[in-house]
Design a protein around this nucleic acid. Structure first.
Lengths: 345, 345
DNA sequence: GTGAAAGCGCTAACAG
DNA sequence: CTGTTAGCGCTTTCAC
């Protein structure tokens, strides 16, 4: 049996409530008592029972990260790990614990989150993705739970979220290629049910249109956030009669697949095809050639999301939070994969 | 105020204990009562308060993953994400929640783990690394806590751990190069205070010695699990008078740095230098050229670790567990980075 | 400034 | 098979 507040109280010759007050730095407690109690706590190796505290205080000082249905299949692991690092770092700094949860399917996810939230196991949730029509978001929203979305919701305007301005980011990436003189620019997208895919596609189209450039349906390919997608997409592109001379890709990992595919087909980068992708993972700088990539500050997104959530939890004043969409700035990092001007085809 | 067991009891016309029994599938409860109570629970939207349950049952059904001091600086993110995926998947399957914790330094780590364990917030811990002389391990061991080490402890024999046979794995990788005819084989290691670095170095040396090959100190370089390490190491190697014709690297990510470095120096792989590394991350297959790599079953390691820990938690019979070091099998995946025979230098 | 008492929501003997 | 009772360890009025 572990040492409790009572044991400390007895040994210190005070009441349990006094010990409790020392623990929570109650203002009206004598310095002397406080000192002595702390001494005894140390001596006895006392550790407050977090569960008991939570039970009475109705707050858990922990948040939950909901991993997407199958993180492995959707994105590069790097993205999630960075996000998680940012979240955990900030949460721990604020004295919050972080729970990791995932579900085999959407129903599972809702149930898991419901169990945690309704069962008072966590105070809030961070969602690491944004799908269109997400039942988890519906649940959280309708039951008035505290949560933050990494990404953007298409249905609800008044929810906390932290996001990249993906339309603008994609616009910038495309514009960069346009400014180098490219006229035929392709686009490799991610799963169409993710908001990020749609937003980046939109930015790409907008940039082309603003530049007065043509956009052909066959220059746009949908895939997964996987190398294989890039690998496949590229053989398709390169066989087109009027093939693109440059391409925007929604994830660095896809670029790696493209790099591999082009190498096998004996094409040179950037001479035969220029590339710009997203996320700027560390490996982007180490590939051959180094990749131009839009850095979206992933760690920062996680850090900020955690901060927003904990703030919302602690200031329980407003039930329905005033809209707060926090946009993390992005920046295009230009490297060799795009620095040559238009290849002569 | 949320709906409690009492509300359900009242509405169902039974006592709270009966409701509790229904909840825990107590054998001696009439099917009819059980049905009615469940119905009411559904109707009222009842969710058991996990904290209250934990408080009385003295078990939390959750475990904690301790991230190394600074995951970002030590290993490829991929490694950790895979481990975590394995752990979370298995834990959730068993109805356990997973808490993520990290500390800014070793003292922080011990304190965090102590707070969680002594504070009865988690039932056990998984350590994602194994350093030599780790105070966290000391703490866990001496206080008789349930924990599993991913890796190997040099100090304690009787602790739960899941590991790769790194000596053998490294032996295999080196032998592969030997069998291709290489006589001068280099080694790029990780931080020397990690057990994995030492084990792999040992396997490498053993293989050389068994093959009657020379091993020179200048063919062995210590670094971090970072691309930069490879990048730096390689310029050193290539300038050696009697430079290695092949090299074993402790992590795929280091290989990427090497690839980049060699490319800039205008060397060709595998013609000028053969490479074998560890982890077999997805990108290994997509690099140019594809990397030969030892697959150590990272996800499997996480999954197994979680399984072992939960088992230890549930069968609390034995206080000091009988030694249980579980070794996950590895396999060398040969790709282009090593399939040519000895380059003529 | 400190103590006494009540109770957070649940489980687990002990009766019946 | 089910109800009664007594806490788990902590916080928090309300007194003094």
């Amino acid at each position: 049996m572990a040492v409790t507040i009572k044991d400390v109280a007895k040994k210190a010759g005070v009441s349990p409530s006094t010990v409790s007050r020392v623990l929570s730095n109650h203002p009206r407690i004598s310095a002397e008592t406080s000192r002595r109690v702390r001494e005894i706590m140390e001596e006895l190796g006392y550790h407050p029972n977090i569960m008991a505290k939570s039970l009475v205080s109705r707050t858990t000082n922990s948040i939950c990260i909901m991993l997407p249905k199958s993180a492995e299949e959707l994105f590069s692991n790097f993205f999630f790990m960075e996000l998680i690092r940012g979240i955990v770092t900030q949460a721990n700094r604020q004295g919050f614990d972080v729970l990791l949860s995932s579900g085999a399917n959407e129903k599972d996810e809702v149930e898991g989150v419901a169990r945690l939230l309704n069962g008072h196991r966590v105070d809030g949730v961070i969602l690491l993705y944004s799908r269109t029509d997400d039942p988890v978001v519906d649940f959280l929203y309708q039951n008035n739970h505290k949560f933050v979305l990494i990404g953007r919701s298409e249905q609800y305007a008044d929810i906390l979220s932290v996001d990249t301005d993906n339309v603008q980011a994609s616009y910038d990436a495309t514009k960069h290629l346009v400014s180098l003189g490219h006229q035929r620019i392709g686009f490799v997208s991610g799963p169409p049910d993710l908001v990020v895919s749609k937003d980046r596609l939109q930015g790409y189209l907008q940039a082309l249109s603003d530049a007065g450039l043509e956009s052909k349906p066959e220059w746009i390919v949908e895939g997964e956030f996987l190398q294989e997608s890039g690998y496949r997409a590229i053989s398709f592109f390169m066989n087109l009669p009027d093939r693109p001379t440059a391409v925007v890709l929604v994830d660095d990992v896809i670029s790696f697949g493209v790099l591999r595919g082009l190498h096998e087909l004996n094409y040179k980068i950037p001479d035969d095809l220029c590339l710009v992708s997203f996320n700027n993972i560390p490996l982007a700088e180490m590939s051959t050639p180094p990749l131009s990539s839009v850095d979206i500050g992933i760690y920062n997104m996680g850090y900020t999301a955690s901060q927003m959530l904990i703030q919302a939890i602690q200031h329980k004043d407003n039930d329905k939070v005033s809209t707060a969409r926090y946009v993390i700035p992005h920046r295009l990092v230009v490297r060799e994969s795009s620095i040559f001007s238009v290849p002569k085809v």
